[in-house]
Each structure stands twice: as structure tokens, then as C-alpha cells.
């Protein structure tokens, strides 16, 4: 028996919205420690890794490890039937091929259940090595989204360079070029509005902007985003999910031919 209950159903909606543009079908792996998901986009350029720890749920029961294959667009559509304040419960039998989503209004005067068929998804699991990154930038998530969107009006790729001066986002296109520099800024009143740069070595990498724009669908999950880069690794864009875990996006760089 699997039973996951979340008082803040709206959170689950945001999680699905953050993944469904990048990944169509994925397995939700549930164990006693929580729920996780790892999937690549169809071109294998980006990978999304989600973790929702069991202690972040209001009720979490998972008698047996389960891998539940779902179409993320279908789940997202289904969750749109829940109110933002609804309590959402997922239920699945150990041997069943369906999952039930139950939505309860905050006053408990409306209860809906939607049953969805599970899918058999053959997915490869990749080992993500622990790494020390050359540069880690923490910044407001809305600012990061704004930068990606603004640069995409000019070009398709972005060069992200971290030096002791700050982090520079540059692009070029048919109509011209653009550079946006963000300097470390820790003097603001609220920590979530600060930009913090931890740099061991300067690093400069090139990425396709359209993937970064997909990642910014996670902006509603967190006020801040952390971007980690090393010259020999995919970049990591991480949004923390309060008290529960994270959604991490890995993006393979463009390399000189």
C-alpha cells in the first residue's frame, strides 16, 4: 500500500508544471525515504532530478518500493482539477496498475477522486557523481528567469562566465548581442534577494537557452535558485522545495568543435 498526503496540494501542481515541458513520461520511484524521479528530455541534453522526502509529507506510507510510470502532462492536467488549497492524497495498491489522486477541499466539504492508469516506462537510471563545482551562484529565481527570457530575445545560446567580478550572461544573434552582469550583492535586507557567488576557479560555459527557459518553470517553487558550474560537467540548476527536497536540472554544455 502506498499513501502520500500533502496538505499543500498546490505544491504538487507547481512540481508537475516545473517538469512537464522537459519530460513527457517518467517513473516516480517511491520508497520509505520518499519519492524521487530522474528523467532526461528526449534529446538527452537535459536531465531532471526530483526529490520529495517522506518527512515533508503530512502522511507517508510506502510498504514496498514502487516505481510508478506516469505521463507528466496527464498528471499535470489532473492536478489542475484540484484547488490550490486542496489536500492532495495519492494512493496505490502494491500490485495495482492505477494510482488514485484524492482532492479534499480545506473545509472537507468536497472530496474528489481521480484514478489514473500507470504506464510501463523503460527508463535508464544515471549515476550522478558528487562533485565539487568551480563556481556556485545563488540568486533570486525571478531574476534568473528574467535574464534567460531577456537574452532569448537576442540569441539561442548563452555563455555564462563566473569570475571574481561576478557572473556574466552573454548572447549573440542576428540582430545584435547582449551582456548581463550580476555582481555579488549580500547587503540587501532579505537574504532571498541577495546574489552570492562562491568561486574556486573562473569558469565559462555555453548552453542552449531554450533548456534554461524550461528550467525556469520551477520559479514558483522557490525564491532562490542555485547555479553550479564546472568546466568538465553539466551545469546544475537547483530549486529547493521547502522542507521537502529539491528539483535539480542538469544541462550538458555546448562544446567547441
Amino acid at each position: 500500500m502506498l499513501e502520500l498526503r500533502l496538505l499543500q496540494g498546490g505544491l504538487l501542481k507547481k512540481v508537475l508544471e516545473a517538469m512537464r515541458e522537459l519530460v513527457t513520461d517518467a517513473n516516480f520511484d517511491c520508497s520509505r525515504s520518499g519519492c524521487s524521479l530522474q528523467a532526461m528530455d528526449s534529446s538527452h541534453v537535459a536531465l531532471v532530478a526530483l526529490l520529495l522526502r517522506s518527512d515533508g509529507f503530512d502522511h507517508f506510507r510506502c510498504d514496498r518500493n514502487r516505481s510508478m510510470g506516469m505521463n507528466l502532462n496527464h498528471v499535470a492536467k489532473l492536478l489542475r482539477c484540484a484547488g490550490n488549497d486542496d489536500i492532495v492524497t495519492l494512493k496505490a495498491d502494491d500490485d495495482g496498475d492505477t494510482v488514485t489522486f484524492m482532492f479534499e477541499s480545506p473545509k472537507q466539504d468536497k472530496i474528489a477522486d481521480f484514478e489514473m492508469k500507470l504506464m510501463d516506462i523503460q527508463s535508464e537510471h544515471l549515476g550522478i557523481p558528487e562533485a565539487e563545482y568551480q563556481a556556485i551562484v545563488k540568486m533570486p529565481s525571478q531574476e534568473f528567469a528574467r535574464i534567460c527570457r531577456d537574452l532569448s530575445t537576442i540569441g539561442d545560446t548563452v555563455v555564462i562566465s563566473v569570475t571574481k567580478e561576478g557572473v556574466k550572461f552573454s548572447t549573440k544573434g542576428d540582430i545584435g548581442s547582449a551582456n548581463i552582469v550580476c555582481r555579488q550583492n549580500t547587503t540587501v535586507d532579505k537574504p532571498e534577494e541577495s546574489t552570492v557567488i562562491e568561486m574556486k576557479d573562473p569558469v565559462s560555459l555555453t548552453f542552449a537557452l531554450r533548456y534554461l527557459i524550461s528550467f525556469t518553470k520551477a520559479t514558483p517553487l522557490s525564491n532562490t535558485v542555485t547555479v553550479s558550474m564546472s568546466s568538465d560537467l553539466p551545469m546544475v540548476v537547483e530549486y529547493k522545495i521547502a522542507d521537502m527536497g529539491y528539483i535539480r536540472y542538469y544541462l550538458a554544455p555546448k562544446i567547441d568543435e
Binding site: 532526461m40 534529446s43 538527452h44 541534453v45 537535459a46 536531465l47 535508464e124 537510471h125 544515471l126 549515476g127 550522478i128 557523481p129 539561442d156 545560446t157 555555453t206 542552449a208 568538465d232 560537467l233 553539466p234 542538469y250 550538458a252 554544455p253 555546448k254 562544446i255 567547441d256 568543435e257
Partner: peptide, 14 residues
């Protein structure tokens, strides 16, 4: 803009 690498160039299947 360079050649696009893939995630599997960096991470191994387990």
C-alpha cells in the same frame, strides 16, 4: 555556438 553535448557524455548508466 559549438556542438551540443549530451548528459550521457558525462553521467554513466547504473
Amino acid at each position: 555556438g559549438g556542438k551540443q553535448s549530451t548528459i550521457t557524455n558525462f553521467f554513466r548508466r547504473v
